[in-house]
């Protein structure tokens, strides 16, 4: 009996010792592992204390690729103008995809702000991260330009500033923050960030506000509400009743952009409408969007 007591006491003592030792060992590990948030000590957007889960709903029944009005897709255009997007990048890009029985539909694709984001997982320096509202942001002061996130993104929604972007002079006056990455930084990765500089102030993103068909909705999964600037809908009911889907859902990335199937029928566009959308244009960017050497000599620079 007595012998057992001693051994029990010893056992407890020893296990406490081992646990303490392990804790000491683990503490530097914990600090290293906890450091997965970039931009610690950076001024965060203060306006909204609430924890949001921003998401977007795109009603393809209303999206006619702007062919019925004969302009470039207005979401892309508003985005380019609003963020001084370097030439060649379309943070929200309209794709033309095939319908099963022939014909085309249009698919506007912003960054999907995945909950299980492959890009965030592979970033070696935590330059790309989720902010408190679930938006995937990039800190361009930390990004080293390895482009691992671009190879990891299964939706091709990330772009690289291959050189010094040619932007209008007023872009230089913008105050940079990961929420509003303007002006674009050479040698870093850039993408749509859901206009998270506008959202806390109760404003809609440029693309949502710019869509003349009101096909884009901005929503909050936590408050179960979404709006396209005209109507306000109950998000969960809206998604279910309209058979919403997410692009490449089977990959398990849990995107926060939902599509309601359609091909622009609300505005009378038929499935076999042959009109293609008008390619996006940039008012800046010179020929290729970046400062480039002309020929092999550095002194013969062109813009």
């Amino acid at each position: 009996m007595r012998k057992q007591d001693v051994s029990r006491r010893e056992f407890i003592k020893q296990s406490a010792g081992v646990a303490g030792f392990l804790a000491v060992l683990a503490s530097p590990m914990a600090t290293v592992l906890a450091r997965d948030k970039a931009s610690a000590g950076m001024p965060q957007e203060p306006a909204d204390k609430k924890k949001r889960a921003w998401c977007m709903v795109i009603d393809l029944k209303k999206c006619d690729g702007c062919v019925t009005i004969g302009t470039v897709p207005q979401c892309t255009n508003a985005c380019i103008l609003g963020h001084y997007v370097p030439k060649g990048q379309q943070w929200i890009e309209v794709y033309e995809d095939d319908l099963p029985g022939g014909g085309k539909y249009f698919l506007p694709a912003p960054c999907y702000q995945c909950e299980n984001a492959p890009c965030v997982n592979v970033c070696p320096v935590a330059a790309t991260y989720h902010d408190k509202d679930g938006v995937v942001l990039i800190d361009h002061r930390r990004c080293i330009g390895c482009r691992l996130c671009m190879s990891a993104c299964p939706y091709h929604r990330r772009f690289f500033n291959w050189g010094e972007p040619i932007l209008p002079p007023e872009a230089a006056f913008a105050e940079y923050s990961p929420h509003y990455p303007v002006p674009a930084v050479k040698g870093t990765v850039i993408k749509c960030m859901f206009c998270s500089h506008l959202l806390p102030n109760g404003k809609l993103p440029f693309c949502v506000a710019g869509c003349p068909m009101k096909a884009l909705y901005m929503g909050d999964l936590n408050e179960d509400i979404a709006s396209n600037g005209k109507d306000v809908v109950q998000l969960s009911k809206f998604l279910s009743e309209n058979d919403a889907f997410r692009y490449k859902e089977e990959l398990g990335t849990k995107p926060r952009v939902y599509y309601l199937p359609g091909h622009g029928q609300t505005f009378g566009r038929t499935a076999d409408d042959p009109r293609p959308f008008v390619p996006a244009t940039w008012p800046w960017g010179g020929e290729s969007g970046f400062v480039r050497p002309d020929g092999i000599f550095p002194w013969s620079e062109t813009k």
Binding site: N121, V122, C123, V125, A127, I144, R147, L148, F160, T188
Partner: peptide, 17 residues
């Protein structure tokens, strides 16, 4: 894209990458 920031990998390295 930013070779002069290669030290970020040591300063801000994430073991998950």
């Amino acid at each position: 894209g930013h070779p002069e920031r290669a030290w970020h990998i040591i300063a801000y390295g994430r073991f998950q990458s």
